[in-house]
Computed example of a mutant assay.
Amino acid sequence: MDKIWANRLVAGTKTWAEMPASRRAGVKAELARRVTDGEISEERYKEITGEDYYNG
Rank of each mutant, 00 (worst) to 15 (best):
V27M: 02
E42T: 13
R24V: 09
A6H: 02
I4V: 15
E42C: 06
K14R: 13
D37V: 04
I40H: 00
A11P: 05
V27A: 07
W16R: 07
A11Q: 11
Y53E: 09
P20T: 00
E30P: 04
A32K: 09
L9V: 03
W16A: 06
E30Y: 01
N7L: 04
E30T: 00
E39V: 10
S22P: 08
E39C: 01
A29N: 02
T15G: 10
A29R: 05
A17R: 14
M19A: 05
T36S: 08
P20V: 00
G12L: 04
D52N: 14
D2P: 03
S41I: 08
A32D: 05
K3M: 02
D37Y: 01
A17S: 15
D52K: 14
G56K: 15
K14V: 08
T15R: 13
D37Q: 09
V10N: 05
A21C: 06
S41R: 05
N7S: 07
Y54W: 14
G56V: 00
T15W: 01
E43D: 13
E30L: 03
R8E: 13
G56C: 08
E43Y: 10
E39R: 10
G12Q: 06
A25K: 13
A21Q: 10
L31V: 09
D37A: 11
A11D: 14
E18P: 06
R8F: 13
G56A: 11
G38T: 03
A25T: 14
A32V: 00
S41E: 06
G38P: 07
R8D: 11
R34F: 01
R34K: 11
G38M: 08
M1C: 08
K28D: 05
K14D: 07
S22V: 10
R33Q: 15
R24K: 15
E43F: 09
L31T: 04
Y45V: 00
T15N: 09
E47A: 15
A32T: 04
S22K: 12
E30V: 00
L9E: 00
K46F: 07
Y53S: 09
Y54Q: 15
M19F: 02
G50M: 11
R8I: 08
L31D: 03
R34T: 04
A32L: 02
G38W: 03
A6D: 01
N55R: 12
R33N: 12
T13I: 15
A21R: 10
W16D: 01
A6N: 03
N7F: 06
Y54G: 15
D37E: 11
E42P: 06
D37K: 06
K3H: 09
G38V: 05
Y45S: 04
T15E: 08
G12D: 06
T15M: 06
G12C: 07
I48R: 04
